[in-house]
Amino acid sequence: MAKINLTVNDKNYTVDVDPKTPLLWVLRDNLGLTGTKYSCGKALCGACTVHLDGKAVRSCTFPVSAVGSASITTIEGLSSDLKHPLQKAWIQEEVSQCGYCQPGQIMTAAALLANKPNPSDEDIDETMSSVLCRCGTYQRIRRAIHVAAEGGVR
């Protein structure tokens, strides 16, 4: 066990955990931030995606001790009021079915847009094809990312 300091969604926390614990379980079990999802546990699906200093990271295989001083953003911290252009686009395009994969989809897309404000279909496919959705919402995800990139929901 070790005491580890974390900054999550601009708040500081200290947790006392096995340093090898994947960040996912620290977020979910220790900090109660359950918006970040578990699905494969092997970096194969993207459901657990969070941002570390703005970069998309799969928290299910990322040891909490490796976070260091990086600032963590989870889906709960993406916006406090559904104002993120992707959240608005997701609602407009009725992307979610069960919704379980969507935090990971949105966090992955947010990191993409931060890097490439105007992604092509190919850019979107490239980044998003590693985030799985069993309900089959891909076509709408792609559309919503374009909506958000092209000035967003008006």
Binding site: T34, K37, L78, W90, I91, G99, Q102
Partner: peptide, 15 residues
């Protein structure tokens, strides 16, 4: 639009 759609994009849905 789906009722409760916001819970599915802000991480608040409790599965």
């Amino acid at each position: 639009k789906s009722l409760n759609a916001d819970l599915r994009v802000n991480g608040k849905a409790v599965f």
